[in-house]
């Protein structure tokens, strides 16, 4: 069966939404899949809503625009409000529970809540919240492997940012682990 995963990553500007999306696309490309990455920004230069559409597929991708996402990685509340009603049945929402304590109303989608920002702070860098959630997504959906994501980090974190590779790798692992635990506790 052909696999095509349509993922939306959404938060506010500065939460690393775009980096997470590009990283997922880069990893998909590395695994020889078809990928598209389409960013959307709010009108403000700083502090606006930001989300991106990422598609990873076994076949050539027609439209890069996602109307009804299969998966959504949600970093703040306005993003949940925006995308929850659009989710495909059976799809999955991965939530940054630190910022969004409330429940998801839809009963026909799977939910994985991760206290990502708190974990990120414990790791020593609030900015890796995005990768904790991306790690969780990769673990649950197997769109790309955690290993490929780690390899792909090197494309983005170069020069002065190279020293951030390690903590980002850790974030992916911890995210994957947290997702496993969360799902086990629900089973």
């Amino acid at each position: 069966m052909i696999m095509e995963k349509q993922v939306i990553i959404s938060g506010f500007g500065g939460q690393g939404v775009m980096l997470a999306g590009e990283l997922l696309a880069e990893a998909g490309k590395t695994e020889d899949k078809f990928v598209t990455f389409l960013p959307s920004y709010g009108p403000e230069m700083r502090g606006g809503t930001a989300y991106c559409d990422v598609i990873v597929s076994d076949k050539a991708i027609a439209s890069p625009v996602i109307s009804f996402p299969w998966a959504a990685i949600i970093l703040n509340l306005p993003s949940l409000n925006k995308f929850e009603p659009l989710m495909k049945k059976g799809g999955i929402i991965i939530l940054n529970k630190t910022v969004i304590p409330q429940d998801v109303k839809r009963k026909d989608v799977r939910v994985c809540k991760i206290d990502a920002q708190t974990i990120a702070e414990e790791l020593g860098n609030e900015k890796v919240t995005n990768l904790i959630l991306l790690g969780a997504y990769a673990e649950l959906e197997k769109t790309v492997s955690i290993e490929t994501l780690k390899k792909s980090l090197k494309v983005f974190l170069t020069g002065r940012k190279e020293k951030l590779i390690q903590i980002n790798e850790k974030a992916l692992d911890i995210g994957a682990e947290a997702a496993k635990k969360y799902m086990a506790s629900r089973a």
């Binding site: 490309k29 078809f34 990928v35 598209t36 990455f37 389409l38 890069p64």
Partner: peptide, 8 residues
Amino acid sequence: LMGQMMEP
């Protein structure tokens, strides 16, 4: 859209 989109 074509300008902002990333693809391999």
